[in-house]
């Protein structure tokens, strides 16, 4: 069954940049999809259009059979709570505790008067802790977020998204700020969660070796246009060169050490 269907999706930013052009896209429920393309190809825009952090200019997006282009404010918040997001720079509140960062994923579930007073019900705190346990850092719950390593911080980001109990997980370059071993660990976490919970997952990546290793399906974007959509197994180096519009270099591979040690 399709969970995400985009038809003629286009995004033009106020400055006139056409970030997405006429994208037709289908994603099946439970898929683990890697979105590849050069920086500026529209990967981030695509993810942010799905949870409406970016407004589509043209076309429609259907999620679970419902068009989400024209949700009112309340419906939009409700919808966003079903879509978890993970960011390149983790986007944690550095000075807050790990637990408080993860509880942010429960905000929509808890009445506002309680969240504003910081009075989360016991079961929501338990839920947040169990999300931390799933990514292996429950013991860090009381630490300040900025005391953690990059890989641990990204796991807090994953736990925050999991705390939303989402149907869809969007990960925008989740490993671009991490070293190679940590990158693999985070990708394995995402893959494991996808397999265990069946959460449809879209991951933006620019490393082709990671894309091939973890992706079941691959979406290729080039200058805002969808140039490939299909199983990862069928993506050859020639196909990548077509998506990237140039020959593949060491910088496009994590193991080749392009951006290692950053």
């Amino acid at each position: 069954m399709e969970i995400i269907e985009c038809e003629g999706l286009g995004v033009t930013y106020p400055g006139g940049v056409e970030a997405l052009k006429n994208v037709d896209l289908t994603i099946e429920d439970g898929d683990f999809v890697i979105v590849v393309g050069l920086s500026g190809a529209g990967k981030s825009t695509l993810l942010r259009t799905i949870n409406r952090l970016v407004e589509p200019t043209t076309g429609t997006i259907k999620v679970d059979g419902r068009v989400i282009n024209n949700l009112d404010k309340k419906e939009l918040k409700e919808y966003r709570s079903e879509v978890g997001m993970i960011f390149q720079n983790f986007n944690l509140v550095n000075r807050s505790s790990v637990l408080r960062n993860v509880l942010a994923g429960r905000l929509r579930e808890v009445p506002t008067w309680r969240t504003l007073l910081g009075l989360f019900p016991e079961e929501d705190v338990e839920e947040a802790l169990s999300c931390l346990e799933r990514v292996g850092i429950k013991e860090k719950a009381d630490s300040r977020a900025d005391e953690l390593s990059g890989g641990q911080q990204q796991r807090v980001g994953i736990a925050r998204a999991l705390a939303q109990e989402p149907k869809i997980l969007l990960a925008d370059e989740p490993v671009a700020s991490l070293d190679p071993p940590t990158s693999h660990a985070v990708m394995q976490d995402l893959k494991r969660i996808n397999e265990e919970d069946g959460i449809t997952t879209l991951v933006n990546l620019h490393f082709i070796d990671l894309a091939q290793e973890y992706g079941e399906k691959i979406i290729g974007l080039r200058e805002g246009e969808l140039v490939y959509q299909g199983p990862a197994s069928k993506v050859t180096e020639a196909k990548f060169e077509e998506i990237y519009g140039r020959s593949i270099t060491a910088d496009d591979q994590l193991t080749a050490g392009g951006e290692a040690d950053v």
């Binding site: 949870n51 960011f87 944690l92 000075r95 905000l107 929509r108 504003l116």
Partner: peptide, 27 residues
Amino acid sequence: IDPGPIEALEATGANYPEMFLYAVIPQ
């Protein structure tokens, strides 16, 4: 302040007072 946490909170479906209290105030 870092706008990242505000974006992250918006993505969870948090409302404006919650974004303010959880992403702006602690910073």
